[in-house]
């Protein structure tokens, strides 16, 4: 009993020693070195920065510090935007562009995913097709525009085709890259349970490649918007790209900025939609 008691005393004495030692050497806390390198969410910083920049820009334009040849005032660009709404032209431009974007992007993505899956699943297709994809992907589709015009006409065909081709290649690459990265063990598991080939593709390979395919979509959607301006260079009466090109030709910089702002809003909207799709389709992820 007494021994146990002595054991219990032990730590207490140790702290007492420490207290006493304090007079000899000062006791201080261990310095904290673990701070920083952590992302914290600042929701309104971007908005705030944007507003501040626009205000500075407006002030610069009003005072003449920024010449109106170099850059129109934001209020002028807003005026051009307001004109678009007033005349209802914005809906003509938007609907024309959206039509081209939606058809070009969805058909390009659909074919891209299909070809990407074929490349990933059949080694004969991979051997045959993937060198072509690698060779054709870096070609600026704008360079092919004259050919597209001969093939598809100056109507909607060549515009949709430009976007479609621009979307197709990154989608193929994202898809087969995604399939290549699907956990082999999951596929082996499927085989070990006697799942059919189609079931393995549908239930294991495609969902497994989905995150990569969706990030591919994010990129291909941006490419589609970039190509919109190029696509509407030829024979387009309406469309955001045509509007921007016309503004450039007329040196109407207020309209130019308004058009570019429309493209930005379009890009943000598309990005937001894809984020929503990701959140829903990949809800199984953390």
């Amino acid at each position: 009993m007494s021994l146990d008691a002595a054991d219990l005393e032990q730590p207490r004495r140790a702290t007492a020693d420490l207290q006493q030692n304090r007079h000899v050497a000062a006791v201080k806390p261990v310095p904290f070195r673990g701070g920083g390198f952590v992302h914290t969410r600042h929701r309104f910083v971007a908005l705030f920065l944007f507003v501040v920049l626009v205000i500075l820009w407006e002030i610069g334009s009003q005072t003449g510090f920024i010449s109106n040849i170099a850059l129109p005032a934001p209020s002028e660009a807003a005026g051009a935007m307001a004109d678009l709404f007033e005349t209802g032209m914005i809906w003509k431009h938007l609907s024309a562009s959206l039509y081209r974007l939606v058809i070009g992007w969805s058909v390009g993505s659909l074919i891209g995913v299909t070809v990407g899956l074929a490349v990933a699943l059949f080694s004969i297709v991979r051997a045959g097709v993937s060198p072509f994809v690698s060779a054709l992907f870096p070609i600026p589709k704008i360079a092919l525009l004259p050919l597209f015009i001969i093939w598809f006409g100056i109507g909607e065909g060549s515009k949709v085709a430009t976007i479609l081709f621009g979307v197709f290649f990154p989608t193929v690459i994202a898809t087969y890259g995604g399939v290549d990265n699907v956990d082999r063990n999951l596929i082996r598991m499927g085989q070990s349970f006697g799942l059919s080939w189609l079931s393995i593709v549908r239930k294991i390979i495609i969902p497994g490649a989905l995150p990569a395919i969706l990030s591919g979509f994010r990129i291909s959607a941006s490419i589609a918007i970039i190509l919109l301006v190029a696509a509407e260079m030829i024979g387009a009466e309406f469309g955001i790209g045509a509007y921007i090109l016309m503004a450039g030709a007329l040196f109407a910089t207020d309209q130019l900025i308004a058009g570019v702002a429309m493209l930005s809003v379009l890009g943000l909207t598309v990005g937001w939609l894809i984020s929503r799709a990701e959140r829903w389709l990949l809800r199984w992820r953390a």
């Binding site: 100056i154 260079m233 030829i234 024979g235």
Partner: peptide
């Protein structure tokens, strides 16, 4: 008149020759 922008003179020529405009 359906005004058809082609950006460059060679493109207009090509479109006219091929009957696209």
């Amino acid at each position: 008149l359906k005004i058809t922008p082609m950006q460059k003179v060679p493109a207009v020529i090509a479109a006219l020759k091929s009957g696209q405009i």
